[in-house]
Nucleic acid binder design. Sequence first.
DNA 1: CGCCGAGCCGAAAATATCTTTCAGAGGTGA
DNA 2: TCACCTCTGAAAGATATTTTCGGCTCGGCG
Lengths: 304, 304
Amino acid sequence: MKEIFARERGGPGGTPPAPAALAAKVRTLAPSMTRSMQRVAEAVAGDPAGCAALTVTGLAELTGTSEATVVRTARLLGYPGYRDLRLALAGLAAQQQSGRAPAITTDIAVDDPIADVVAKLAYDEQQTLADTAAGLDTVQLGAAVTALAAARRTDVYGVGASGLVAQDLTQKLLRIGLMAHAHSDPHLAVTNAVQLRAGDVAIAITHSGSTGDVIEPLRVAFERGATTVAITGRPDGPVTQYADHVLTTSTARESELRPAAMSSRTGQLLVVDCLFVGVAQRTYETAAPALSASYEALAHRHRP
Amino acid sequence: MKEIFARERGGPGGTPPAPAALAAKVRTLAPSMTRSMQRVAEAVAGDPAGCAALTVTGLAELTGTSEATVVRTARLLGYPGYRDLRLALAGLAAQQQSGRAPAITTDIAVDDPIADVVAKLAYDEQQTLADTAAGLDTVQLGAAVTALAAARRTDVYGVGASGLVAQDLTQKLLRIGLMAHAHSDPHLAVTNAVQLRAGDVAIAITHSGSTGDVIEPLRVAFERGATTVAITGRPDGPVTQYADHVLTTSTARESELRPAAMSSRTGQLLVVDCLFVGVAQRTYETAAPALSASYEALAHRHRP
DNA sequence: CGCCGAGCCGAAAATATCTTTCAGAGGTGA
DNA sequence: TCACCTCTGAAAGATATTTTCGGCTCGGCG
C-alpha cells in the first residue's frame, strides 16, 4: 500500500544509507518533505550528536512531532528505520568530534583546561617518540647492544631526571642477568669507573650533553678502555668526546610549563627500552628464563 | 561489603562512556572479565563496524553467549546498556573508516632486526600514550590536582618500575615548592603514612593494582583521612578500595620481550606529567619562579 | 457555501529490542 | 565429598521502535 510510496521515495534507486553526506542529503530532500518532516530533518542535520542521544520519542517531542513522523523522515533519508539513522548520526558525531583539531599544536597555557593539558602532553610525547625513533642511528644502537650483551659489567651514569632513566635501564638489565649499576652520586660514579676495563660498558645519560657530573665518570671509563655510550639530546655536546657510541634523543620544544626534563625523559626511555630489547634478543637463551623467573618471583606480592 | 571503606568508586560505574578509547578500555578491563564476557569484548574490539550492525541477540549468537552476557559486558565497559555501547561502536567505526589505518603490529620477535625493534617499540609506546590520554578521567584528574595543589604534604608510593615513576613525580613537585616524598620501602612508607591527616595527599602507583606493598600505606593514609589517589592499570583492582580518585593508565598488550612494566611506565609517566602541569597551573604564582630558579641553579653544572 | 477527496499527522496497538530476574551449571576450597 | 560461590543463559519484564488506523486540514469543485 503506502510502503510503495515510502520505498520509491527512498532516494535514487534504493540508495544505501549515507555516512557523512547526511547534511547534503537533508538539503536535497528538503523540498520533497512535509512541514513536520522538515522540522525533524533540520534538527538532525543541526545537531547530530545531540539527536543521536535521543530516542524516537525524545526526538519527536523535541521537534514537536510524533514518533511516526520521525520514522518516516528516517525512511526518506534512506535508512530502514530510525534505529539505523541514529547509528549513522552517532558515527557522524564521532567524525566531527575527531575532525576538529583541538589546537594541540600550541604551547600549554596557564589557563588551559585540564583536558587540553592531557591532549597536548600526550601529543608532544608521541611526537618525541616518533622523532627519536626516526633519528636513532641503528648502527650505533646495534654496536651498543653488542657491547652490552658481552659486557662483564655495566655502569650507568645519570643525575636528576636522567638518573631515573639510568635506574630504569639498570633494573631491566639486572632482570635478564647482566651486571649493571646505576650511579647518580658523581663521586661514587668516578670511583667506580676506575674499576672498569676493556670489555666493560659505561653509559652516560644526559639531555644537555654537558652535565659535568656525568661526563667525568664517562671520561674515566673511556680512558680505562671500557666501551662508552652516550644517550644525549646534543650529539655535539662535550659528552660525546668520550663516547664510542652516541645515541641521540629528540629534543622537543620546551616551555615554561613543560621543562626540558619532561620531554627528554620520554626519548631517553625509548632508547633505553631499545637497548634492553636488543640485549634480550642477543642473550635470549638466558634472558627468557630470567624474565619469567623474575615474573614468578613477584607473583606472591600481588593480592588476590 | 568492602564498599564500606570505599568513599567513592572511581572504577566502572562513575566513568562516562568513552568514544575512541574503547579498544584501550577493552584491554584494560579484559583481565577482570569472565570468559564469555571476554569473547564479547574481543568481538567488539575486533570488528566495531560489524558489531554495531548487530542487535543484542545477534551479538550474543555471534559470540556464542547470551543477551545477558552482552549487556553485562557493555556495563563493564562503562555504558548504561548495550544500546549505548552500540552507538559508541558506530562512532568508532566511522572514525576508523575516515581516519587512519587499523594499526596492527606484530609482536617483537627474537630475530627482528634492530631497526624493527625501534619502530615497534616507538609505535607501541605512542599507542599507550594515546590510549591513556583517551581513557583518562579528567574529572578525577582535576580533583587530584586540586587536592595536590592544596596539600600540606604529599606522599607517593611505588615499588619496582613504578618506584621510578613515583620518584619522577616527587622530583617535579619538589621543584615547584610542594612537600613531596617518594617511598619505595614498604615499611617506611607505612610508618610515614601514619603521619598523614586530612588535607594531605597520598598517591599509590601500581600497574597491577594489587601490589600489597603499595596498597598498605595507601590504606593507612586513607584511614587517616588523607586524600588518596591511585594510578593504576586495573581500575577494578584492590588498590582502588582506598583511593578517592582513580587515574587509569592504558594496558598495552605485553609479550615475552616486552614486559608489562615497560608499557605501563609510559602511561604512568603521562599521568604524572599531567598532574604536575595541572598543579603548576593552579599554583602558577609560586610555581613559575620556582621553576626558573631551579633551572638557574643547575646552569653552572653544565660545561661550556 | 458546503461537500469531497487527497494527503498529512499523531495516538495507540503491535512488534522488535533491550534489560532484569532467577535458577541451574560449573568450578573451588575446606 | 560437600558447601559455597560465581558465572551463565532462559525466560519474564520493561523500553523502544514500527505499524496501523482514524482524524484532520486544505484545496478544488459543484
